[in-house]
């Protein structure tokens, strides 16, 4: 398990406005062994070579969504990406595109979090509750499986050209959240939520570029969800 894979070079985006207004890229060399993830390498670099290297991380098991970043041109979670699976020995690590950088690989995701607020991101029930759980068939539960597995890492919205061009665009991450409720058989705010995503900055901003599906580290299908939302909105209004 500790077989060495030899030396790798990490070229990492650096930005610290306290020291310089200009971003730069630093190069670090390190010995990588089999089983090491990109996050393991970033931690080793921080511990041994440069303590000022700044990135978010927490669970290191691909469920908290803290360490989403752009690695060799693709948005992914640093913690679940094995270095051995990357092509070449030079690895480019950049912050998620589309969000303002706070420092190094840490971005400000307020726009992403705010976008969630635009789709009524909580369960709504108007007709009251039974004493027990609301019934739901396994098939109805499966309908939203894709969407409830979202970890809000922000990779999809970060990769969406519609969001780059126009940050009022709701973006695939929040639209996936909208899907999660609109297609939940127990939820009773379908109409309100469809109206929320039916505007000019909602589903119709999606140009089916499919970047979001490419970028999702969990293999979810935001674009498929958006397509379903478009059809639902169409049936509602036309």
């Amino acid at each position: 398990m500790t077989e060495s894979l030899g030396k790798y070079t990490f070229r990492i985006f650096r930005y610290d406005p306290e020291r310089s207004a200009r971003p730069r890229r630093d190069t670090f060399e390190m010995e990588v062994s089999r089983g090491m993830t990109v996050l393991d390498c970033l931690q080793a670099i921080k511990a041994e070579q440069d303590g000022t290297l700044t990135f978010r991380r927490s669970c290191r098991s691909a469920i908290c969504g803290s360490c989403a970043m752009n690695i060799n041109g693709k948005n992914d979670l640093a913690c679940h990406l094995q270095v051995a699976l990357l092509r070449g020995r030079r690895i480019a690590v950049e912050p998620l595109p589309g969000y303002p950088v706070i420092r190094d690989l840490v971005v400000c995701m307020d726009e992403f979090y705010d976008s969630l607020m635009r789709v009524l991101p909580w369960f709504v029930r108007k007709t009251g509750f039974p004493d027990r759980e609301l019934p739901q068939s396994p098939a109805d539960r499966d309908r939203i499986d894709n969407a409830v597995n979202c970890i809000l890492c922000g990779s999809c919205t970060s990769s969406c050209p519609s969001f780059w061009y126009n940050n009022r665009s709701i973006g695939p991450g929040a639209l996936l959240k909208a899907f999660r409720f609109i297609f939940d058989s127990r939820d009773e705010a379908r109409g309100e939520r469809l109206a929320l995503v039916d505007g000019r900055d909602g589903v119709w901003r999606c140009r089916t570029v499919y970047n979001c599906e490419e970028a999702c580290p969990k293999g979810l299908r935001p674009n498929e969800a958006i397509a379903a939302l478009k059809i639902a909105a169409l049936k509602e209004t036309v």
Partner: peptide
């Protein structure tokens, strides 16, 4: 507590009868 979570919208897996 579980029923409360379900009423908040928690998407638990279901039995064929539609229960948690």
């Amino acid at each position: 507590a579980i029923i409360g979570l379900e009423h908040m919208g928690t998407p638990f897996s279901r039995t064929p009868a539609g229960r948690i």
